[in-house]
Design a binder for these strands. Structure first.
Lengths: 322, 322
DNA sequence: TTGAAAGCGCTAACAT
DNA sequence: ATGTTAGCGCTTTCAA
């Protein structure tokens, strides 16, 4: 692998000149530039980023901390981050914390070793103080850690509100919210939005906690059998909604005539099941992209931007609502 | 951020000694070691990996090239890679090529800038010669690039064979294979395995190409309406299988009495739809893990290992087969 | 057992 | 417009 000295020798100039050419900085004669560029080409020279970073103390790398990858939300967000990072010359180093603080700390150490310039975190941990020690710009996803740390959040409150509104305006009287684990902030926000709309309309709804990935079908079944009158269901993801639908089928209910259902996430599941699922869609790619845009602002010293971005959700009307 | 000099000063030793301590290399008195370790702790010192890499010419980083992230196969594999990499002190830098050669080349450049130690590629591009120029160990996923490049492949041939065998042994006579795009190697392999079993049993099957993510329902519908006798269907993923099932429902066919169906991938979709889908399951996490294990062998100079790993598939029997 | 010093590849004063 | 050189933080010979 050729280095800057080799190039300088071949082009018959000093390393400083080569440096000027590759960084497009300082005066350099057009002819010498040509000479250097030719040398670079023939030697297939690519500057060593380590040497550069060692001096400049920036790495053009950002770290991303996520609790999992196996979850459509995170890898879609990751795509958005990666896209925007790439366009700005940043590399992405991923940390999969597995919700494990020890592991996350280990990763944070890696991050300082590699001098990452910035951090995007979607972790649920309480390692904020560790993040701060890094003394680098941080952006938080789906959670407002602190007023001075920019965040990008999906409008969960709005999503909950929207779902309630749709259900009520299309005539539902007896509602249930099959939600995710209520320890999660996102779930709490959706519940608040949902409840807000309910109280505005003077309505009531049951709330049932379920696991996101493997919801307990027996809970759904027994709830539905006890509450025969239910005619409106809001589910915190499409998986739960799919289970509810198959349960209602078993019970001989017609959808959407007897019961209307709204899911969340608009996964491919939504248009696969019969009837096709009406659902609230999160703009995951945008969330990632916006997070990286915020980070970029921080990185370039810009202070005037929307510090706490709320990414809207979209309601996708299909066949499970009237 | 403290550096090695600060530590040396505080411990009243030379930087060389500190280096010996942090690398556990060379002679160092137990007492001095204690001194140094204390200094490291009080200063919260973490060695700068750039300076280290600059000298040692290894980065403890590997690159991963994937065509997408938005695809359960890739992010599950990524989890496996990440897990094993982390356990061996390697960081993962991801490259999302978007099936775009230009973009992939750009990333390869990034990789050399950062001196990555090894590469795992799941790309479908023809940039092998570019990879080779990197002069670093490479492992290929789901594709055997070349005899001298270790690969980790899911047993697609076996999966196809297995599906045919199950269908035939449970009495199917008129078969169809709704497969993915036949340009894909994985699809070709499954088809070969499937056909092999068929020819052994003296049977025949139709082959229909479909898109993996958004299969054209009209193609499925028209095929099924023309070929009324079909009683066995092998689908190259669960999404296609789900569409086939809803189509068969529409036609008034009973599953599995009239028609039996086998999917592929064992996504959560499989146990969500009614009836629950019998399917072929790929060990995605293992594929990633094994790829990193192979890379690790290469990285540590070991030459004696299984160069071309075939990861078995599992048949998951559910309600769409007899 | 420890320290001094050269050097990894690059950048940026400073000098010319 | 170009070259000389110190130094980024670390590792490793070599000498003591």
């Amino acid at each position: 692998m050729a280095n800057i000295k080799d190039v300088a020798k071949l082009a018959n100039v000093s390393v400083a000149t080569v440096s000027r050419v590759i960084n497009n900085k300082g005066y350099v004669n057009e002819e010498t530039r040509k000479l250097v560029e030719d040398a670079i080409k023939t030697l297939n020279y690519i500057p060593n980023e380590f040497a550069r970073s060692l001096f400049k103390k920036v790495s053009k790398t950002i770290g991303v901390i996520f609790p999992h990858l196996i979850n459509s939300f995170y890898y879609n967000v990751l795509e958005g981050i990666e896209e925007e990072a790439f366009n700005n010359g940043y590399k992405v180093m991923i940390c999969n914390s597995h919700e494990d603080d020890i592991r996350e700390e280990e990763y944070i150490k890696q991050f300082v070793k590699y001098n990452i310039d910035g951090l995007i975190t979607g972790s649920n941990s309480n390692l904020l103080y560790k993040y701060r020690e890094l003394k680098i710009p941080i952006v938080s996803i789906d959670r407002r850690i602190d007023a001075d740390i920019p965040s990008v959040t999906s409008d969960n409150y709005g999503g909950g509100y929207l779902a309630a509104e749709k259900l009520i305006s299309s005539g539902c009287k007896y509602l249930v919210h099959f939600r995710g684990p209520s320890i999660l902030l996102t779930v709490q926000d959706r519940t608040r939005g949902y409840d807000k709309c309910l109280s505005e309309k003077g309505m009531f709804s049951w709330q049932v906690d379920l696991d996101f990935l493997e919801p307990d079908i027996n809970i759904i079944r027994s709830f539905l059998s006890v509450h025969e009158a239910i005619d409106g269901v809001f589910c915190d993801n499409d998986i739960i909604a799919a289970h509810v639908i198959s349960e209602l089928h078993r019970m001989g209910k017609r959808i959407p005539q007897d019961v209307q259902i709204i899911g969340y996430d608009n996964t491919y599941l939504a248009h696969l099941i019969t009837p096709k699922l009406s659902t609230v869609s999160q703009r995951m790619f945008d969330i990632g992209k916006e997070a990286m845009i915020s980070l970029n602002h921080l990185l370039s010293g810009e202070k005037e931007f929307n510090f706490h971005k709320l990414i809207p959700v979209d309601y996708i009307s299909r066949e499970t609502t009237r």
